[in-house]
Design a protein around this nucleic acid. Structure first.
Ligand SMILES: [Zn+2]
Ligand SMILES: [Zn+2]
Ligand SMILES: [Zn+2]
Ligand SMILES: [Zn+2]
Lengths: 131, 131
DNA sequence: GCCACCACGTTATATGATTACATACACCAA
DNA sequence: TTGGTGTATGTAATCATATAACGTGGTGGC
């Protein structure tokens, strides 16, 4: 897990908000939660989020335009993280699969595509909600 | 390839705009392009896009909040489409990988996750741009 | 002290998406 | 023919997401 002791006040607040949430939160939603703590403008939230994402403590969920605290603590060494997102309860499960990595790598080298950040998001229903 | 002869005027215009573009376009960008053709409001574009996506003629790129014309013509029978997106020139390449599909299915059934739409987007540099 | 650096704060604005409501036309049944 | 249903359309207003531009304030090196 990444070091967490050097976070600034705003970063700490945003991270706490995300860790306390059931699922992903949008930036403006976070802002509402943190108004009582003195945050007033979107940029304060976005700046904190940028840093937290950079540190790997928070992930951006593209298909929701929202953010979620990293729940894994696994060391995200550049490998692609898959997110299974329950559309009912909102919970997000992270996992990695070396075989994914391998297949993606194979396609990319076959096509001389220099790979950057990869997004893999699965929407659906989690076990509890599918019942 | 899906039937294209039944499109309405607005749908036709939006599809043509996307097919004429180098890469993905945002909805407001499309609107600008089509103002000369009489489109005036975002909703006109969004409605056309909804339908085109439904028909499989257009894909939404989540990480860009933008849309791209289907370049493959392959029959997208519910399988996950991977998009390789060049961050330099904007070009998007689609592909599918049955083995990938298989691994996804495996994880989902192991975790009793009922799978819905899956997003797989690879950002990076295409062969021409990586040079 | 002075400067560079970084976090922070504030306002305004750009971009993306939807809600609500009214209009127009094709098609079919009574 | 008339009325009703369904679908596409047009327009305005509004919500949601994200960034630009500018200024402030502390901290550490020199
Ligand atoms: Zn994580
Ligand atoms: Zn659930
Ligand atoms: Zn396609
Ligand atoms: Zn390129």
């Amino acid at each position: 897990m990444t070091d967490t002791s050097t976070l600034t006040r705003n970063q700490r607040l945003v991270l706490d908000a995300l860790e306390g949430a059931e699922g992903p939160l949008g930036a403006y939603r976070i802002l509402e939660e943190l108004r009582p703590n003195g945050l007033r403008a979107p940029l304060q939230v976005y700046r904190a989020l940028d840093r937290l994402v950079e540190l790997g403590l928070v992930h951006r969920i593209e298909c929701l335009n929202a953010f979620v605290a990293c729940s894994a603590g696994h060391d995200h060494g550049g490998e692609t993280i898959a997110f299974a997102i329950c559309e009912e309860c909102g919970r997000v499960t992270e996992f990695v699969d070396p075989e994914f990595e391998h297949r993606l790598g194979a396609w990319c080298s076959r096509h001389a595509f220099r790979r950057g950040k990869t997004t893999l998001e699965i929407r659906g229903l989690c076990e509890s909600c599918a019942a």
